[in-house]
């Protein structure tokens, strides 16, 4: 009887031994950090965040008029710029989208690809995302002058975004970007490199303080004019973000009226140090299929 009991115990424990033997052979996969950014955009620029596969985003971006005084209710009763857009995540790492903006009646097609994800064990200390868009100016032909061609309407923006979630409450990203507009005014440039800084400081489980700062780089080697008549201004924005798994809401102050990054980089004439600031908000709704 004792012998049978011993065999029975060995038989019952055998699977545990087998599992214990096999466990070291399994390759432990590093997990990505949880949400370095909760929203696809941070005020005027993109973040490294891409929603999970088969998620549809609907984005409403709104910018009010310049903050002046109570007579225009600090810009809220003035003119506005609005962008309506939709993005779809084809995979966890790739999303595509389309949007239309009131200013210039600009249609834009965009693509965003997550190249690297920051991991919890820090084997990969950063997240790296590529973003590109192509804009089509939808205004009447007369805005393009003589010898008009349809391709005169095109503009482009490409950027590489590097982000790091430093702590549970602080994420920072830096992006290098390149903008191009096919046909510009005689005083303007066709190309512009730029750099942007953005960040999110979480103040509660669902809300954060967000900021961004964009710097157009006036590189003489690629400049077409020896002196820039209307050099683009640096762009500053700061705001408050509330996010859930299906919504993202940002309300902010920004020095840009444009909602298209290439035009912010190339044509923004608002100087935030002189008080050229605008209230704005962005609402993002996500549906997972």
């Amino acid at each position: 009887m004792k012998k049978i009991n011993t065999i029975l115990v060995i038989f019952l424990l055998l699977p545990a031994f087998i599992i214990a033997q096999e466990a070291p052979k399994e390759k432990v996969k590093s997990k990505p950090v949880r949400a370095p950014f909760s929203c696809p955009t941070v005020i005027d620029y993109q973040t490294v965040y891409i929603p999970t596969a088969k998620t549809l985003e609907f984005v409403i971006e709104h910018r009010f008029d310049k903050i002046e005084n109570i007579s225009n209710l600090f810009g809220i009763y003035g003119s506005s710029n609005i962008r309506l857009g939709a993005n779809y995540s084809i995979t966890n790492k790739l999303s595509v989208g389309y949007g239309i903006t009131k200013l210039r009646m600009l249609s834009d097609f965009r693509i965003k690809y997550n190249i690297l994800e920051q991991t919890r064990d820090d084997k990969m200390p950063i997240a790296l995302t590529a973003y590109g868009n192509m804009g089509i100016d939808g205004r009447s032909e007369k805005y393009f002058g003589m010898d008009y061609k349809f391709t005169n309407r095109f503009s482009y923006y490409t950027e590489l975004i590097v982000a790091r979630k430093f702590t549970d409450w602080l994420s920072i990203q830096v992006a290098g970007n390149f903008s191009h507009i096919n046909r510009v005014d005689s005083l303007m440039e066709h190309d512009k490199f730029g750099i942007t800084f953005s960040g999110r400081a979480r103040v509660s489980p669902q809300s954060s303080i967000v900021f961004n700062y964009g710097i157009p780089l006036n590189i003489s080697a690629i400049q077409e004019h020896t002196t820039l008549t209307n050099a683009p201004q640096q762009n500053f924005g700061i705001g408050y973000e509330v996010s859930t798994s299906t919504h993202c809401f940002q309300v902010f102050i920004s020095s840009s009226t444009d909602l298209s990054p290439q035009y912010i980089m190339m044509e923004n004439q608002n100087d935030w140090t002189k008080g050229d600031l605008f209230f704005g908000f962005t609402i993002t709704r996500l549906w997972s299929f």
Partner: peptide, 9 residues
Amino acid sequence: SCEYEWIQP
């Protein structure tokens, strides 16, 4: 489709 053109009024 990248071009370098100027607006000629």
